[in-house]
């Protein structure tokens, strides 16, 4: 059978792609523990279906595809289970940050989580993982135009979430900084 002896180099490549898979998973789900579970599931599925991978094609894209499919079917399952999920996330956004050093990255992470998952995926694939629109489309199983529009919508949504309103909302002291940050929640 073709998968009885999978090539050692392929396994080596799989191992070397794990950091990338974890980064993708964290960007998608925003949680390192859940991300690691996704990676584990991805590795197991990939291992069991190595015979369906065509050597010479893009292993990274193949693994990313398995991971995102795993993530999205999990999302669908969770959506059925927990209807309030989006509501609770939106509430999180207006939480007053207590660690001033956190503000920027924390807010960005939260804003990222608020995006619809398909938009977040497109943005991460193109904007962080360095895939082309074409590759991202293949990974996500949709048209190139769809990826482009998802990326655009994600970008404008993030800009909207992260930009502060008018300059008059500012004050001179650090306390105001925290208030300004809260506008991320109120948009």
């Amino acid at each position: 059978m073709s998968n009885a002896t999978t090539s050692p180099s392929l396994k080596q490549s799989m191992l070397s792609l794990i950091p990338n898979l974890r980064a993708f998973a964290v960007s998608l789900c925003g949680d390192i523990e859940r991300a690691d579970d996704l990676v584990q599931e991805t590795l197991l599925k990939a291992w069991n279906h190595l015979d369906s991978f065509q050597e010479g094609t893009n292993l990274r894209a193949w693994l990313f595809t398995i991971l995102r499919n795993t993530y999205f079917s999990e999302c669908r399952r969770r959506r059925r289970e927990v209807e309030d999920r989006d509501g609770s996330k939106a509430a999180d956004l207006s939480v007053h940050p207590e660690q001033p050093g956190h503000l920027d990255m924390q807010d960005f992470r939260k804003a990222l989580e608020v995006l619809p998952p398909d938009q977040r995926e497109a943005l991460v694939l193109v904007g962080a993982a360095g895939f082309s629109y074409e590759e991202a489309a293949e990974i996500s199983g949709c048209a190139v135009g769809t990826i482009k529009s998802r990326v655009n919508r994600a970008r404008s949504k993030l800009t909207e979430l992260l930009s502060v309103g008018s300059a008059s909302e500012y004050g001179p002291d650090p306390t105001t900084e925290a208030i300004v940050t809260r506008t991320v929640g109120s948009r």
């Binding site: 950091p19 990338n20 974890r22 980064a23 993708f24 964290v26 960007s27 390192i32 991300a35 920027d104 990255m105 960005f108 992470r109 990222l112 943005l123 991460v124 904007g127 962080a128 993982a129 970008r155 993030l158 800009t159 992260l162």
Partner: peptide
């Protein structure tokens, strides 16, 4: 946005 995205990604990668 691009910078922040890459931060989050490369942190873990």
């Amino acid at each position: 946005i691009g910078q922040m995205l890459r931060h989050i990604f490369s942190d873990v990668a």
